[in-house]
Every structure is written in C-alpha cells, then in structure tokens.
Amino acid sequence: MVMTREARSPRVSRRDWLGAGVALAAVGWGANQFSPLIVLYQQRLGLSTATVDAMFGLYALGLVPALVAGGRLSDRFGRRPVMLPALALSLLASCLLMAGDVGWLFAGRFLAGVASGAAFGTGAAWVRELSAAAGTAAAGPRRSTVAMTAGFAAGPFVAGVAAQWLPAPTVTAYLPHLVLVAAAVPAAWRTPGELRAAPVPDAETVAPHRLTRHFLLVLLPFAPWVFGSAAIALAYLPTLVATRVDRPLLFTAITTGAGAVAGIAAVPLGTALRRLRPGRVLPVAMIPVLIGIAGAAGAAWSLSPAAVLVTSLILGFAYGVTQFCGLADIQQAADPRSLGTATAVYQTLSYLGFAVPFLLAVAHERLRLTPPALLLVVLGVAALATGWLVVAGRARH
C-alpha cells in the first residue's frame, strides 16, 4: 500500500516503531500473565473448570467493545492519546488481580480485556504507520505480531516462574508487569503519534462496501482461529494434565511461554505466504491450525504432559502464522484513513476465539462428551472453515 505523508507529520526514523512496540508488548504481557495461575486459583479457591474458563474468557468481553472504540478514537485523535490510557488500565488490571479473591479476579480480567482492546488495534495501526513513514511499510504486520507475541510469551512464563518459587505468588507474579508498564509509558510518550496519511489509489485497497463483504465472507470464518488456537494451548490443555505433573505452575508457564515463542518463530513463514496469490494465503495459514487441534485431541486422549507441550508449540505456531496473515490482509485492504478501525474490527473477530475453552468446558459438563471428542468436533468446524476459505479464495481470484 502506497502512502504519502502530510507536511505537518514528524520525521520518523526506522527505530521509532519500537516505542509503540514496547507498549504493545506491555499490554500483551498483562493480557496473558493470568494463564499459568489458573491452576493455582483452582486449588486455592476451589473453583470449577467452567468458572476459571469463564474468568479467562471474560477478558474477551471487555476486549471486544474496547477494540472498536479504541480503533475509532485513535483514527480521530491519534494513536498515542489512546495507547497511554490503555497502559494505565493494564496496570490497574494487574493491581486488581493482586487482590486475589474471586470478585477482584473477574474485575481484573475484564479490565485487562478493556486495556488490550484499546491497545491492540491502535498499536498495530501505529506500528504500521510508523513503519510506512520510515519507508518500511511491509514490516508493519511482522513488527506488531512480534511485539504482541513477545508480551504474550514473556508474561505467562515470568508470572508462572514467580508463582512457583517466590512468596505470596498471587501478588509477586504480577509485579514484573507493573515494572514493564512503568518503562513502556515514557517509551510511548516519546514516539511520534500524529501520523496522518493521504490515501493513494492502490490495486489492493478495496472499496468500503467490498471491505465489509470481505469481513463477512473471508475474515469472519478465519479470524477466530487465531486466538482459538492460542486459547486451547493456554487455558484448556494444561488443566487436563495439571494433576500429572509435580509442579503444575511451572509446567503451565513453560507450555504457554513456549507456545508464544513458537508464534514468533512462525512469522517468517507468514512473510513467505504473502508471496502466494491473495486468495490462497488464508487457507494455507489454516493448515497449522488443523494440525494443532488434531494434536490437541491426541494429547487430551493420552493425558501426556509431553504431548501437551508439543501440541502447545504447534498451536502457538498456528497462532503466529494466522495472526500475521490476518493482520497483513486487513492492513493491505483497508483505507489508510480508517486503518485503526478496520484493524480493531478484525481483531475483535480474532478474539472471539478466546471463548473456545469456556465452550469446551460447558459442553463437557452439559453434553458429557470427553475432551478428545470435543476437540474432534472443533477440528471438524475448523476443517469446514478452511474449505470455505478455499472456495472464497477461488471466487476472489
């Protein structure tokens, strides 16, 4: 996408995107640090699997409206005026989680979702604009994916390790995030925020009515698998084998952190996939999702911690590929003047996947289906979505 800069836009260097990237990573850290502590809260508070999965999924309830609102506000007022309050909300969410009882945990997870919603669409658009202003527009999706995923990886790993070995684990696990946010605020403050682009006709940019159709027919069946894959690895599989490992907190921290690192490792594949014809990129990106969910069904059947770890790596890889390809798709298709809003809407669809662990837990309790059977059902739905994307890609071509 070709963009021109207005005269009043500030000069941007090739490293200025790092300020926005650190802010994205800090909010991503806060979003994911709760995951390895699920087992601890189950043990200490006597919570059911459905309750902790609902607590995990409540994050999405706060995130979805904040994504749309944050995208619109950042398109109108700039990226930095939205990102700074998002960092403050992320810090407040960690403080609520440190309180430790059930009510504060629900409130903290909801507020973490609001912070993430305000930050992720805004931050991804900000990184894209900063990269374009520095002459490296194609690097925007890769940089925003790496920044978010780095936070997603480090947050649960550090929180799990702290909870395993430090005193007062439900408090000390959240302290590193507070330090990171304190460092991210001045980094974001110094980053150029008033970047406005005049749209230039581009063969890849689509008209608004066609973009809406693209959302409904292509991105809606694709986007939920981005975080649907991640959520299975983060919140569902580790709880199935928690009683089979000596140190469940450490095991969960390793599986969630390793999965997120695999997501970063997947970015080069996403870059390579962009060379394919546009209608083929998203169906090919779904292949690791299908492999990961099939592996999850096998791990749920064997209840092997090693199988859960390997499956988490595959699902994390699937997350990285789909996240990159989806962001690249929407940032290529959207009008630069509404980039924040379009990115936020896409990410709203992707975060619907966070409901998967809760839906699996409810289906297990109500339908009495085993976890392997439920995951095979999910695999079937993912296969249908992939088939639809193949058909839609051919029609688009």
Rank of each mutant, 00 (worst) to 15 (best):
40 L>P: 01
144 S>F: 06
382 A>H: 02
330 I>P: 02
243 T>E: 15
211 L>V: 10
38 I>A: 04
77 F>K: 06
129 E>L: 08
327 L>H: 01
185 V>F: 00
31 A>N: 12
18 L>E: 06
360 L>C: 02
43 Q>F: 08
291 I>M: 13
45 L>V: 09
246 D>G: 15
284 V>K: 05
306 A>N: 12
119 A>E: 05
226 V>Y: 04
102 V>A: 13
149 T>P: 08
58 L>V: 09
32 N>F: 13
18 L>V: 15
169 P>W: 04
358 F>C: 06
101 D>T: 14
264 I>K: 08
125 A>K: 06
194 E>Y: 11
5 R>Y: 03
70 G>C: 01
335 D>Q: 14
9 S>V: 13
25 A>H: 02
66 A>S: 00
182 A>P: 01
163 A>I: 13
251 F>E: 00
71 G>V: 02
281 V>M: 05
282 L>R: 02
310 V>Q: 13
116 S>A: 14
140 G>M: 07
8 R>P: 01
98 M>A: 14
125 A>I: 10
194 E>I: 03
269 L>Q: 00
165 W>R: 12
318 A>V: 09
63 L>K: 00
130 L>H: 03
319 Y>G: 00
389 L>C: 03
388 W>E: 09
143 R>H: 10
356 V>S: 07
361 A>S: 11
69 A>W: 02
29 W>P: 06
370 T>Q: 11
31 A>C: 06
95 C>V: 12
167 P>V: 06
270 G>S: 04
289 V>H: 00
15 R>H: 15
158 V>P: 09
136 T>V: 12
231 A>F: 09
325 C>P: 02
313 L>T: 06
192 P>H: 06
15 R>V: 11
364 H>K: 14
5 R>T: 12
311 T>N: 10
384 L>R: 09
344 A>D: 04
194 E>R: 15
123 G>Q: 08
72 R>Y: 10
386 T>P: 06
36 P>M: 08
344 A>C: 13
343 T>P: 11
303 L>W: 13
382 A>F: 05
68 V>H: 04
230 A>I: 08
186 P>S: 09
127 V>W: 01
344 A>E: 08
378 V>E: 04
111 L>Y: 02
363 A>H: 07
355 A>D: 01
71 G>C: 03
311 T>W: 04
87 L>V: 01
219 L>Q: 03
141 P>G: 00
312 S>I: 08
320 G>F: 00
13 S>T: 15
274 R>T: 04
49 T>E: 14
269 L>G: 01
118 A>K: 02
116 S>M: 11
371 P>A: 11
345 V>M: 12
311 T>V: 07
157 F>T: 09
336 P>W: 12
108 G>Q: 00
25 A>G: 14
54 A>F: 13
